[in-house]
Design a binder for these strands. Structure first.
Lengths: 261, 261
DNA sequence: TTGCTCAACTTGTTGGTACAAGCTGATGTG
DNA sequence: CACATCAGCTTGTACCAACAAGTTGAGCAA
């Protein structure tokens, strides 16, 4: 019976059925799903089995749950980030650029800032071509949009650079921007290498970005180069469900006419 | 007692303890974790509670489980993909380039290929500036490295282009490459826009890429432009745990000396 | 030696129960 | 009316039990 298809476990059948109904619009973005008890009746399965099915959809990022409220279909509102704009050659979204962008989009920006004297972890040291464990300055930024955590940004500067640019250790934003400050000292960033990766958040990241289950993070590492050597390495961590990155390369004159914003 | 820290549920304590031990190297990449029964004794918790803790680590992508074998710490072997190399302006990893790259890395490439006459889904239609639902040709590629599924690639060509370039509908690879073929017809790709996003895989993607729980996919959309209008849109889906993307922009002469490969 | 069987391990699935804890609206008191 | 309380919903945590199903190695048979 049932068409001879492979016999799926019951919790999977539950997940598949609900996923179909979500995809087909029976439950649209933001809609509330029936309670575990109701689903238990409908599928003739125990609450545990229903929960297994639901938790599958949660870890797929399709729905989320809150105690006392129920399950609801996640709504995705993405923010597109243009990583190849020329003004960003200098720095991925410096403080001012970020505030301006967000305000222009009709949203309310907010950020906290911190400077730390630390040692370069291996990953950073490799990219700055310094010894792992050597001293470095970390400028850390935690960004919000409409009070929703959006991204964290950690920029590491190598020891030798800090000696020539002591204001990098100043707590608080540098008014003219770190790039202009460095340029004024004759240290010009002439190129960068970006690396993009994704994975599930660490508990620390999940806390800072208020990420629920089933949402990956997008990791953006930008290493900036002077003509002689790397001068900084920035790791930006985004909520994967809220962000997308853009690179535009070559002649795109055929594009701009049709694009909004 | 216990230092007055917030009282975490037991399954979380289990996950945290094991995560610490994995991070600290007690269980290295590929190592097998103690069985549920052993952990049950160690933490004085029921098997279900232990399973809750373990499934947390699974959905973080830290470990994986197989029936009959146990849980093991995932090993991450990443493949770096340079998206801004000039030869890739024409096409993200055309068939030959892919085979060459993989062979050079001492691995064994393998791919299956398919051509379909279809209608453009909304997402594609937007980027090709054609009407959603209008006819399009889809060239689909499923790639493996050492028989491990690596990526899927779906390239859509708009109807008007296919009329001028009928060989696009040929099943099987086009020997000289689609880009050269199109260039020979006077259709030159002069720029592209890349979009990068991440999310958890759909069941279909999980099947094709053999992705377990806790591994996101990396979505790479490249829209190629002629001087007049978009000519193709390629969506490549990568396993997030096996791939990383690179963009190099500007003068990186200070870099090459130190980089391997 | 070779090859098969099977016991003993592992995780996977499904059922049950009980209580904790978060949320909402009805109810009743001031 | 304003406000506190609480019943009744929701999901979260934790336990128990039983059997299914995949894997491995010991041990026996040919």
């Amino acid at each position: 019976m049932m068409g001879g298809m492979s016999k799926q476990p019951k919790y999977r059948q539950v997940a598949d059925a609900l996923r179909r109904e979500i995809d087909s619009g029976t439950y649209g973005p933001g809609a509330r799903l029936p309670s575990e008890a109701e689903l238990s009746t409908r599928f003739d399965a125990s609450r545990n089995t229903i929960r297994s099915g639901l938790s599958l959809l949660v870890s797929e990022g399709l729905i989320s749950s809150s105690q006392g409220l129920g399950y609801e279909v996640r709504k995705h509102e993405v923010f597109v980030l243009n990583a190849s704009k020329f003004e960003n050659l200098s720095f991925p979204q410096n403080g001012d650029a970020y505030s301006t962008d967000v305000t222009n989009a009709g949203r309310r920006p907010h950020q906290t800032f911190r400077v730390e004297l630390t040692t370069a972890p291996e990953y950073i040291a490799e990219r700055l071509t310094v010894d792992a464990g050597s001293r470095a300055v970390l400028r850390f930024c935690h960004r919000f949009v409409d009070d929703v955590p959006w991204s964290t940004q950690a920029t590491h500067y190598p020891d030798w650079l800090v000696e020539r640019a002591p204001r990098l250790t100043e707590p608080g934003d540098i008014a003219e921007g770190t790039t202009r400050y460095l340029a004024g000292l004759g240290i010009e960033q002439v190129g960068y290498a970006d690396e993009i990766a994704t994975r599930m958040p660490t508990p620390e990241e999940a806390r800072l970005l208020e990420i629920g289950a089933g949402v990956p993070v997008l990791l953006w590492t930008r290493t900036g180069y002077s003509p002689e050597r790397p001068i900084r390495c920035t790791i930006t961590t985004f909520r994967g469900d809220l962000n997308r990155m853009n690179y535009e390369i070559g002649d795109l004159s055929a594009r701009s006419e049709n694009e909004p914003q």
